[in-house]
Design a protein around this nucleic acid. Structure first.
Lengths: 331, 331
DNA sequence: CTGAAAGCGCTAACAT
DNA sequence: ATGTTAGCGCTTTCAG
């Protein structure tokens, strides 16, 4: 593969001039630039990335570590990140931590070893994993979930507020015993959505009945099981707040198999807008999070921090939007 | 950030010994290994990836270039690739070409510049883009779509066969005027699915009616429009083969808005299994492709080729599975 | 404005 | 078994 010195020989100049010409340093004789560009093209020259990174002590790649590639919410974030990064010449490498602290740790190590310019992460488990980056001065932005230490840029949505709204909506629609199916304890979004749910009940002068709350992994299977449990008890809920779209699938399957109809028998609102929401017989009401914008905002924040590591940490909080459909309407 | 020579100094050995110890060369005195490992740990040493890549003239990263990160089919492939790669110590960088030849080209350039060990690609548009890799001897595996030149490892599914089966199933269920909504001309999967559809009709002694065929981008919006067009004509189809799951969403929305019921009014089979298929009032019949396995197979093929570039190119063809549900049953 | 040369951090001969 | 050293390809002083 052609190197910079092949190009230099072919163009009859030094490697320094080739480097300057190809990197757009203005002080190069236009005629030489033309010769260099020509030589590079005929040789099919492509710069050696590792050599450049080694010399410059920096790379033009960002790492994005998410907890589930198959969750549309996270892939939408990924698009947002990528579109912003691409526009300024950065590449993005997408890593899937799968809600596994060990995997997350390994990817962080890879990110450090490859000397990426910065990391955007939706942190899984303990914040100590991320400390590894901060110790080395690698810029980090947390997205979707805050880091325990507030000393880090974050892009969040006001998910507790959104949960409160959604629950309030179910109350207004006349549902009496509203339950909540949320993610594992310790996952901030799961806890916040539960907190918002409780606030709404309290604000309406109702007791939050702990027996109507279930936790499970953020996946269909766990939510399915949790729903079946909930409906084996005496006090069956007639309303349900579901904390993510994967869970919604498990919940809706369970309700169908029990023979309950959405809206009339049980009002349901789920987090995350999904393209199939409107295909259901009773279309699904959702809390739509601005995932694409979150990704874009996170990327911008990261780029700013890369440019200026002394900037004070910012937290950007975006709002979610409740979309009311038939699944949360009595008739 | 600590370098190898910092570790060498701290452990009281040469950098060569540190390198050997940390890379598990067996001929190092166990006591020295221990000292090195200790020094490395206390210094928080992490090897410099670019330096290593430059020296070794190889990297332990694979690039995966797919045409749509938001399509569950491709994210499932990504998981398959990643699980195999991870197990043998490779990282995977995921790139989203978005069915855009220009973006694809840019990512291929990045892959070359970063000197990735190999590329798995679901090629968009002209095959000439990929030639760039083959000219440089970068190992490539095509997945989901073949490369025009057969001189390249491929992992495909027998999608024409699957389309024929699915169409045959609609015929057997008694649907009389079966239409097809497929992707853009030139995209091999789109063309193959159409070809399989036609074969099935011919085998049943029916004319393939060109007026029942529509093409659109592999997205919901285009399929929605195409469906509306189809149902404005005299000869409305009573059966539909839909070439991917994003399109299925557009089609189902259109049918609902026209007031047609799945199964009874119009039998529908769509490519790609989706988790929400069973949530519909009339659950959706699908052609389930083994996406995860495809990713795994592609990764294995690529690793083999990296190890032995002289191996003859292989084409692995996997089978899809028709899952019959209520959307393709009259009653 | 251009060239010569040093050196980023690591690994792999080669020498001991 | 360990150390010495050259050099991967590039960018960037420093001279001229």
């Amino acid at each position: 593969m052609a190197t910079i010195s092949d190009v230099a020989t072919k163009a009859g100049v030094s490697t320094a001039t080739v480097s300057r010409a190809l990197n757009g340093v203005s002080s190069v004789d236009p005629e030489l630039v033309a010769r260099v560009v020509n030589a590079a093209r005929t040789l099919g020259y492509q710069p050696n990335g590792p050599a450049r990174s080694l010399r410059r002590q920096e790379t033009a790649v960002l790492a994005l570590i998410i907890s589930d590639v198959e969750n549309p919410f996270f892939t939408a974030i990924a698009r947002g990140v990528e579109d912003v990064a691409q526009a300024v010449g950065y590449s993005v490498v997408l890593c899937n931590s799968d809600e596994d602290t060990g995997k997350e740790r390994r990817y962080l190590d890879v990110a450090i070893q490859e000397r990426v310019a910065g990391v955007i992460i939706s942190p899984t488990g303990t914040p100590s994993n991320v400390d590894v980056l901060r110790d080395r001065g690698t810029p980090v932005v947390a997205v979707d979930r805050p880091l325990a230490e507030r000393s880090c840029d974050c892009v969040l949505v006001d998910t507790r507020d959104a949960a409160r709204h959604a629950t309030g909506h179910l109350i207004e629609e006349g549902y009496q015993r509203i339950g909540c199916i949320t993610g594992p304890a310790g996952v901030p979004t799961a806890d916040d959505r539960l907190a918002g749910y409780r606030e709404a009940l309290r604000a309406a002068g109702r007791d939050a009945d702990a027996r109507l709350v279930r936790r499970a992994e953020y996946r269909a299977a766990g939510a399915n099981k949790a729903t079946h449990e909930l409906y084996q008890e005496h006090n069956r809920p007639d309303g349900l707040l579901v904390a993510n779209s994967a869970m919604a699938i498990g919940v809706l399957e369970a309700l169908a198999s029990i023979g309950l109809r959405l809206g009339s028998d049980v009002g349901v609102v789920a987090f995350d807008d999904v393209p199939w929401a409107t295909l259901l017989d009773r279309p699904l009401s959702v809390v739509a999070q601005p995932a694409y914008d979150m990704g874009g905002a996170a990327a911008n924040l990261l780029l700013e921090r890369i440019a200026d590591s002394d900037r004070a940490p910012t937290t950007t909080t975006l709002n979610a939007r409740l979309i009311e459909r038939a699944s949360s309407t009595r008739l």
